[in-house]
Simulated scan of single mutants.
Amino acid sequence: MTALGFLYPGHSAEDDYPRIEQLLGSDVRLDLIHTDTGEDAHPVDPLGEMGSAERLAEGMEELRLAGVEAVVWAGSSGGFAHGWEGAQAQVRTLARLAGMPASSTSVAFVHAARELGVRRVAVGATYPEDVATLFAEFLRAGGLEVTGTRSSGTVTAAEVGTWEEEDVLALARAADVPDAQAVLLPDTALHTAAHLPLLEKTLSKPVLTANQVTVWEGLRLADRRVNAPILGTLFTREPPAQA
């Protein structure tokens, strides 16, 4: 059994995680601990506070007692709002607090794009435009080319959590451009686990979503690969052959 820990802000799309755990169809356990979001809004200052070391430390003991092998901070904007270097420092702090391998959703997007061998990405963000721009800048600092950013201007995670499949698909379509090798949807408050096959079929390219890449990153940290095509192209890499 591989046990992975996730620090998740709020409750907006928490049910993506048990769904992903079921879809993995393997001996993987996903343990979710909720962190305090503070103000449920997307202005830059509250986002930075949401990912503070003090808030990340909350619930860490519970994850350690659960016996998880790695931990991922599942708050996209609470990572990239610190910038590339700040997000790296945040991950190092989390690893030190946890005493185990650690990462974040924001960093996971860059790792996932590299895994797929894509450089040019389009961004479909639920956030206001200034926050979406911060994510694009973060990706560029991580070595990716952002072909375009589409913002829905949604202010709160609670509202994003109510989006239906057609809303998610509309955002992805609006963001997509022919030059993009993949489309990124960077909000862990957005339900996407059930929509990945339709998203990729509609756009005819890989789609990377926040909760999807967060779980994949946890598996990567634990040196696990799980083939689960229903979770998108990212999960179609075959596990390495056993000696």
Results as ranks from 00 to 15, higher is better:
residue 233 T to I: 03
residue 22 Q to I: 10
residue 152 S to C: 11
residue 170 A to V: 11
residue 30 L to K: 00
residue 181 Q to R: 05
residue 72 V to F: 02
residue 217 E to P: 03
residue 38 G to N: 03
residue 24 L to M: 06
residue 179 D to G: 14
residue 53 A to C: 14
residue 155 V to Q: 06
residue 243 A to G: 14
residue 109 F to G: 00
residue 156 T to H: 14
residue 167 D to F: 00
residue 85 E to D: 11
residue 128 P to L: 10
residue 109 F to R: 04
residue 185 L to F: 08
residue 163 W to F: 09
residue 143 G to Y: 02
residue 79 G to C: 10
residue 193 A to T: 11
residue 212 Q to T: 07
residue 224 R to W: 02
residue 4 L to P: 13
residue 171 L to Y: 07
residue 113 A to E: 02
residue 231 L to H: 01
residue 62 E to W: 12
residue 21 E to Q: 11
residue 13 A to G: 13
residue 148 G to A: 06
residue 35 T to Q: 00
residue 190 L to R: 11
residue 173 R to E: 10
residue 210 A to V: 12
residue 83 G to K: 05
residue 128 P to S: 11
residue 107 V to N: 15
residue 113 A to G: 02
residue 28 V to A: 03
residue 169 L to E: 10
residue 111 H to Q: 15
residue 28 V to N: 04
residue 164 E to C: 10
residue 2 T to S: 13
residue 160 V to R: 01
residue 165 E to R: 11
residue 117 G to E: 06
residue 164 E to N: 09
residue 58 E to M: 12
residue 6 F to N: 00
residue 33 I to V: 08
residue 241 A to S: 11
residue 119 R to P: 01
residue 167 D to M: 06
residue 81 A to G: 05
residue 118 V to L: 08
residue 69 E to R: 08
residue 154 T to P: 12
residue 22 Q to W: 07
residue 40 D to H: 08
residue 171 L to W: 15
residue 68 V to Q: 03
residue 104 S to A: 03
residue 65 L to G: 07
residue 146 V to N: 07
residue 82 H to N: 08
residue 30 L to F: 02
residue 141 A to E: 15
residue 60 M to W: 03
residue 52 S to E: 12
residue 139 L to S: 01
residue 210 A to Q: 10
residue 62 E to A: 11
residue 226 V to S: 05
residue 18 P to Q: 05
residue 184 L to K: 02
residue 152 S to L: 14
residue 219 L to S: 09
residue 69 E to K: 09
residue 212 Q to I: 12
residue 168 V to K: 04
residue 202 T to I: 04
residue 54 E to W: 04
residue 228 A to I: 04
residue 44 V to A: 07
residue 137 E to W: 13
residue 202 T to D: 05
residue 36 D to M: 11
residue 11 H to G: 04
residue 236 T to N: 07
residue 109 F to K: 01
residue 46 P to S: 03
residue 30 L to H: 03
residue 177 V to W: 10
residue 192 T to A: 01
residue 25 G to S: 12
residue 192 T to W: 04
residue 118 V to K: 15
residue 197 P to T: 01
residue 6 F to V: 02
residue 210 A to S: 15
residue 178 P to T: 00
residue 88 Q to H: 14
residue 127 Y to F: 14
residue 48 G to R: 14
residue 195 H to Y: 15
residue 57 A to M: 11
residue 197 P to D: 02
residue 128 P to H: 02
residue 160 V to Q: 10
residue 43 P to G: 01
residue 212 Q to G: 11
residue 242 Q to I: 09
residue 47 L to F: 13
residue 123 V to C: 02
residue 76 S to I: 00
residue 179 D to I: 14
residue 16 D to H: 13
residue 146 V to H: 09
residue 122 A to K: 00
residue 37 T to D: 09
residue 171 L to T: 03
residue 161 G to P: 10
residue 20 I to G: 01
residue 91 V to M: 06
